[in-house]
């Protein structure tokens, strides 16, 4: 099958590549760009481990073809740290609140939470549960993921984070 030339901006860098039309965006990111932080967990659009930010939307990159993202701007987990290399508020929140265990769902969680907080900077617990419902985690039971996002929201809003009472 003839290959197609694609260009996109990924984590701030202009990238290009030759892909088959059927090449899934997640494989382009992982194999061509060697950005392996984006994971594949289910391949059926359920688990959200492959979530990236595509032109301001959280998308599951296992269900988008790379050719569809031609000309787009993409952020992956590898582009989420602060410019000085320190952990961003969300990354720090996941660590401080023990929002991860095996780490496999974490990139997708952080990418989704990033867009959620862009759209809703002060979400309630219920907003977070709904907003994160496209991402599966097998380890944490979600409770500490919710705390992690609340921690990040507080930090980004410059307010003190009060840990939810047990």
């Amino acid at each position: 099958m003839a290959k197609t030339h694609v260009t996109m901006k990924v984590d701030g860098a202009e990238v290009e590549g030759l892909v088959e039309p059927r090449t899934l965006l997640v494989h382009f990111i992982r194999e061509n760009l060697q950005l392996t932080g984006t994971h594949v967990g289910c391949e059926t659009t359920h688990c959200g481990a492959c979530t990236v930010d595509l032109d301001g939307m959280s998308v599951k990159s296992c269900t988008v073809f790379a050719v569809q993202a031609d000309g787009s701007e993409i952020t992956t987990i590898e582009g989420m740290a602060n410019p000085d290399g320190s952990l961003s508020a969300l990354q720090e929140g996941f660590r401080m609140m023990h929002g991860l265990q095996c780490g496999f769902c974490t990139p997708g969680m952080i990418m989704r939470a990033h867009r959620l907080l862009q759209e809703n900077p002060s979400p309630t617990e219920q907003d977070i549960r709904m907003g994160m419902s496209g991402n599966l985690c097998r380890c944490t039971g979600y409770q500490n993921i919710i705390r992690a996002i609340q921690y990040a929201a507080a930090k980004l809003n410059n307010v003190e984070f009060k840990e939810a009472a047990e």
Partner: peptide, 21 residues
């Protein structure tokens, strides 16, 4: 104690089997 592992996992720098190339 906060987890040592999380520094790499939160940055997508874990090294899982499918990352081996």
């Amino acid at each position: 104690r906060k987890r040592v592992e999380d520094i790499r996992f939160t940055q997508g720098k874990g090294n899982y089997v499918d990352d081996v190339k």
